[in-house]
């Protein structure tokens, strides 16, 4: 197991190095850079930036250096000083600060929706499989298809409109106008909760819909295996048997994807966040891409990649912990 872990960690470092190089390469691919974006913006406003000013800006940001020099500057600062560089478009604030400011909300949103999805999808999925083709199963299937087919942003827009029109809520954003600049107190906390349940609900709908279908399919694969009949022949009560044998086995595919939640924590539900004006990390990254803010975007992609790679390792370890077949194949190999 230890040698397996060591090997995996080694590969992880190599993968991340390759990812960082590719990331930096891709963000420097489009013609122009942040300064040319600035220039274009200035021209739109009818101003003209002198060549001297442009050159000064380029030098200041290190944009006149070679690709590898820029890459080295970027990656060594991250590795040695934890410094992700500055976000040009955000008044040269450190990228790290910008991201971490928003991570809390992104994480909260992700974790909350995830818990809701599991809490709803597991019981319904199990019911749906065990009572296959019952009215309840058909209802769950209908909900599943609708939930997966309706785009989230559409749901968000409709619900926001309904909230405003009929319930006089002010959905969207994180705070009501009166609390925007208020200090934190109970009222403000309730106000935030009041604003967050709707996005959580919307994100959870499609997740739950997909979850139910996956859990149902996984469980149906196991439900009629001989070992279930054999366990029943021992005289186990049905619900105990269900949870101990087929449900347990059907959770293996679930554990093999559990690590993908990690990048989800920080990617922020971009579309919903934009539609509902939530300050998560998603819109920040989109803004960075639009203004060719290379350090911001590069850092984002690097952090997401790292979390993905770490998440995959976490998945593999979780699966090994859960499924003895996997555990033994690691130990053997």
């Amino acid at each position: 197991m230890l040698s397996f872990l060591g090997r995996r960690l080694g590969w992880m470092v190599i993968t991340l190095w390759a990812v960082s190089l590719a990331t930096f390469f891709i963000i420097s691919l489009p013609p122009g850079d942040y300064v040319s974006t600035l220039q274009a913006n200035a021209e739109e406003r009818g101003e003209v930036m002198g060549p001297a000013e442009v050159a000064a800006l380029r030098e200041r940001y290190g944009l006149d250096q070679s690709f590898f020099a820029q890459y080295w500057k970027w990656i060594s600062n991250i590795l040695l000083h934890g410094d992700f560089g500055q976000a040009f478009a955000w008044n040269n604030q450190p990228v790290g600060d910008l991201i971490w400011d928003r991570v809390a909300l992104s994480c909260f949103l992700s974790v909350a929706t995830m818990l809701i999805i599991w809490a709803i999808a597991w019981p319904i999925g199990i019911y749906s499989a065990v009572r296959q083709y019952s009215p309840g199963d058909y209802a769950a299937t209908l909900f599943g298809f609708i939930g997966m087919a309706v785009p989230e942003f559409m749901l968000a827009l409709v619900l926001m409109w309904v909230g405003m029109r009929y319930f006089h809520l002010s959905p969207g954003g994180l705070f009501s106008p009166e609390y925007q600049d208020a200090a934190w107190n109970l009222g403000k906390l309730l106000d935030v909760a009041n604003h967050l349940w709707l996005p959580i609900l919307i994100i959870a709908v499609s997740g739950t819909a997909g979850g139910i279908r996956i859990i149902r399919a996984n469980l149906l694969d196991e439900l009629y295996k001989p070992y279930v009949v054999a366990a029943r022949a021992k005289g186990l009560p049905e619900w105990k048997l269900l949870l101990k044998y087929p449900v347990r086995t059907s959770m293996s595919p679930f554990f093999s994807t559990v690590g993908w939640l990690l990048p989800g924590l920080i990617s922020g539900e971009t579309i919903i966040s934009i539609v509902m004006n939530l300050p998560t990390t998603g819109p920040l990254m989109l803004g960075g891409v639009l203004s060719q803010d290379m350090y911001l975007v590069g850092s984002f992609i690097l952090i997401l990649s790292t979390l993905t790679v770490v998440g995959t390792l976490v998945s593999d370890l979780a699966l090994a912990w859960w499924d003895p077949r996997i555990r033994h194949s690691y130990e053997g190999g």
Partner: peptide, 30 residues
Amino acid sequence: VRGKRIAMVFQEPMTSMSPMHTLGNQIGEA
């Protein structure tokens, strides 16, 4: 009656036991 009065042995031993549990777990359970 199941397991206590009348017990059953099945055709395919490889698939008639849960791969997730030890022999001791599955036998002791009965």
